[in-house]
Structures are given as C-alpha cells and as structure tokens.
Amino acid sequence: MTDEKRTKSIKIRVNESEFSALNNQKEKAGFSMLADYMRSVSLNLEVSAKQEYPKVDPVLQRQLSGIGNNINQIARQVNSSEIKAGDSLQIISYLSSIDKNLKQISQSWSTQK
C-alpha cells in the first residue's frame, strides 16, 4: 500500500452478530481498528497474528508500580511552581531511592533467570 491519503469511504450494514464476529476476528488478528482489519482482509494483505506478551510476576509488577508512583510524585513536585531549596533535596533523595530500587530489582531478577 502507498501512503496516499484515503479520501473514499465505503459504508456497509451488518447485524449485531456479524458486527460482534468482525470485532472478535479483529481482536484475534491484533488490530485495534476494525477499518484497518477489514481493509487488510479485503485487499488480501497479510493479517498479522496478535503479539503475545509474557506474563509478569505479580511481585515484580508491584515493585515497578511503586517506582512509577515515586516518579509521579517527583513529576508533580517538579511541575509545581512552589519548589523550594528543601524540596530540591527531597527530589534528589527520591531519585536516588528510585535508582537504588531499580538496581535492586534488576539484580534480583537477573539472578533468578
């Protein structure tokens, strides 16, 4: 396909079960938009299989979530206009803590594999 702008549209009518079936097939094929899926199928383009993501250990997920929360707290403080000298030290402390946590998680998970 070319990167040419799409200016034409095609309207089709389907019943509820057909619509559901099309959406299910779209999901199985890994498409987020029904139009992209239908275009690929109609034009005999390669329909890629949905990418399977590996399951993440809940312990790791909780640790990463905690780190994400710390980063959000830092971002909130940095984006506020009320940053004081003491706050800067706290931000540096948060960043140091996040760095330490990431190193511990990385070391822990690299020794388990």
Rank of each mutant, 00 (worst) to 15 (best):
A49G: 07
K26F: 03
N70M: 13
K28H: 03
N72E: 04
I74K: 02
I92V: 13
L60I: 12
Y94L: 11
Q112K: 15
D99M: 11
I83W: 02
E16S: 13
K8M: 07
R76H: 14
T111P: 01
F19P: 05
K8A: 10
I10G: 10
I67F: 11
Q107N: 14
V41A: 13
P54G: 10
Q104N: 12
Q51H: 11
K26S: 06
E52Q: 09
L60V: 10
K11T: 15
S97C: 08
S40M: 04
V47K: 07
R39C: 08
K11F: 09
V59L: 02
S17A: 13
Q63P: 00
G86H: 06
A29E: 01
E46A: 04
E46N: 08
I83Y: 10
I83L: 11
I12N: 00
L34A: 04
I91Q: 06
T2G: 07
I98V: 12
Q25F: 02
S110Q: 07
D99E: 06
R39G: 06
F19R: 11
V59W: 02
S65T: 00
V41G: 01
N23T: 15
N69C: 03
Q90V: 09
K8V: 14
N23C: 12
Q61C: 02
N72A: 06
L95T: 10
N70Y: 07
K28S: 02
E82Y: 14
N44V: 01
M38R: 00
Y94I: 05
E82S: 11
N44S: 12
Q51F: 10
M38P: 00
E16T: 13
Q112V: 14
E46H: 08
K55P: 15
I74V: 15
D99G: 14
S9N: 12
K55C: 14
S110Y: 05
I12V: 14
Q90D: 08
E52W: 06
M33G: 09
S48Y: 03
K84W: 12
F31G: 00
I105W: 03
N15L: 00
K84Q: 15
D36E: 03
L60W: 01
K5D: 14
A21D: 00
E52K: 05
S20E: 02
S65H: 08
K8G: 13
